[in-house]
Nucleic acid binder design. Structure first.
Lengths: 94, 94
DNA sequence: TTGACATGCAAGTAAACACTTGCCTATCGT
DNA sequence: ACGATAGGCAAGTGTTTACTTGCATGTCAA
């Protein structure tokens, strides 16, 4: 399985995760349109390659139906980050 | 300020954070020795450059005393990751 | 069946990145 | 003062990465 940290290193990939958190189950084409609308200039191919990285990292799950590719968010791989360096997410600041 | 995500993208930098979490306030030289002991082959210059990236990201704080450079861990910039994609770190799994 | 639509695949390019090399500065012990 | 120690700076190198370009595949509607 791929590297979650490396997957998060790119701003466009983070924007994809943001977009999927806002609306999971989007089509690749939808994703491209909405990212373009938010100022990202990435082409479809670029986004497709980013999705491959995110899928490798387990942050995204992909299912193909007909000619559509539906993309779902899975944030569970992020937990390893939370577990590795405990910043105390449950404790509030003083 | 630098990019926290990009700072975490490198395995050696993550090992530095691990090492500092185990013992914060280490010297650069100590850090080099202990990382070498754990199988990392990075030179002092390489580690110094990694520290610059970590410092830029706010994950590490550096103070110079005499000829020693003391390095302290600061995990607080990680909180932005926790806040961005809520994976529910406080809820236990079912 | 034909054409438009949604996506896949692969080679090439330019920039970013991690690391080395070589030398320089500053501090401490003796 | 002198040598040894701890670290800094900067140019050069090789690899990785993000992106483009061009074409191929598969699906649906008419």
């Amino acid at each position: 399985m791929g590297d979650v940290y490396k997957a998060l290193a790119d701003p466009t990939r983070r924007a994809i995760l943001d977009e999927l958190q806002d609306r999971s189950g989007q089509t690749l084409f939808e994703l491209c349109v909405r990212l373009t609308g938010k100022g990202f200039t990435s082409s479809r191919q670029a986004i497709s390659q980013h999705l491959a990285v995110l899928t490798e990292a387990g942050l995204v799950v992909v299912r193909r139906e007909g000619r559509y590719l539906f993309i779902d968010l899975d944030t569970s791989p992020l937990r390893q980050i939370y577990d590795r360096w405990r910043v105390g997410p449950c404790e509030s600041d003083t």
